[in-house]
Write a protein that binds this DNA or RNA. Sequence first.
DNA 1: GTGGTCTAGACCACC
DNA 2: GTGGTCTAGACCACA
Lengths: 130, 130, 130, 130
Amino acid sequence: MITLDLQADEPIYAQVKNQIIAGIAKKEFLPGEGLPSVRALAADLGINLHTVNKAYQQLKQEGFILIHRQKGVVINPEGVPQADNAYRERLYATLHPLIAESVCRGVGKEEFLMLCSEIYSEFTNGKDEN
Amino acid sequence: MITLDLQADEPIYAQVKNQIIAGIAKKEFLPGEGLPSVRALAADLGINLHTVNKAYQQLKQEGFILIHRQKGVVINPEGVPQADNAYRERLYATLHPLIAESVCRGVGKEEFLMLCSEIYSEFTNGKDEN
Amino acid sequence: MITLDLQADEPIYAQVKNQIIAGIAKKEFLPGEGLPSVRALAADLGINLHTVNKAYQQLKQEGFILIHRQKGVVINPEGVPQADNAYRERLYATLHPLIAESVCRGVGKEEFLMLCSEIYSEFTNGKDEN
Amino acid sequence: MITLDLQADEPIYAQVKNQIIAGIAKKEFLPGEGLPSVRALAADLGINLHTVNKAYQQLKQEGFILIHRQKGVVINPEGVPQADNAYRERLYATLHPLIAESVCRGVGKEEFLMLCSEIYSEFTNGKDEN
DNA sequence: GTGGTCTAGACCACC
DNA sequence: GTGGTCTAGACCACA
């Protein structure tokens, strides 16, 4: 369900976090659904409990999940907070240098948009966009 | 020419690097053109030599610039290495989590592509690029 | 009578405890009046026996209720122990960080006192209390 | 500057956090001013670096401080985010049970408001309210 | 030197 | 059993 690359530059907690976000985007995890406990997932992935906890805390902080003291972790049943201006600014700031480099390397707008479009299709899976 | 935000999360060397890449993309820096020396730029920006050096070393490593012992630093006269498969994979890996979160937050494909398109326009500036 | 939010950060036993205290403050529960047994309340709320028991034990400990083996649970007929110095110190220690943050966030004394005053009105309900 | 009670129920990281907030409220720490590094403060207080770090991370998260990768920690030069509705609701939810108990224990509205008022004076120190 | 990440192991609160 | 807190010690990125 979650696969880690311990060699990668991306911190392990970020890999866990991003794959859970991707799972939510793909509707593999549905609102209200439970996630493995901190200890269970840590054991499963062969990593430390604190590393999983850090990923979970950030997901909680950003509104993706809820953490109950003893019922464990569930996907936010009310869905994820929708994009606000702060999010759009972060998105812009992230995309800007990415596109700058692509321009330099001769990746044209069409190719770039096509790539984005394909990635979108991974999540929406052919269904019409929400 | 380069403006730094010392408060930002983004490391200073990365800000320097990204703004030089952006300058190349906007054709403010042309192939063969000289850049300030490590010392000069560091003094100009009021930052440490090492920081500028790290940015320059990475830019050299990625083929954006050449560093001659005597002649100083110049934009790669042969242009930037064009996108290869390794680059496309990195691009994919970077965009994937970004788009996953956007899907979760209700940023539709059209809105996302429009944002990318606008950023592209900043660089190609109305000209029909590529 | 008691409504729980299983999602909240506040432990369930604390919710039970606080709502009973609020009920006493509002004179919905009068001195000498009976409360449901641990079992009955737990069944009613759909929670664990231990959880209700913990709330009751603390209420007993603090003098709000009496627990008889046979007669069950009753609101302390002699009323709640009045504030002593220990209580006033706890109150101070709790309010202090709360007010510190309010000062930082620009919540002025008048606004804060007004909020407290409104909450008091919920309990005294127009009557001239104390 | 910061005094800990290792025996208290309040977690150590919360004590650190609250005392820094109190320091900001009292204007002992001014916007832009530096705070001790994670390691320095931990050594000073005789506690673990991670405990200080947790306090700092939460203060950063709530907008009280900024954390620079290598310049260390500074009080947010733009001041603390002002109270919003979410903050007011949290304040209400915190004060409600506190006041309920006070009502039960015979602490009248006047006495309670007077206590709050005195605590306010600790911070505003006789100066007119901001 | 700074903070960021990761690991390992302990004890406690909650249910 | 769950998550929350705290400790201890290691290595890395940044400047």
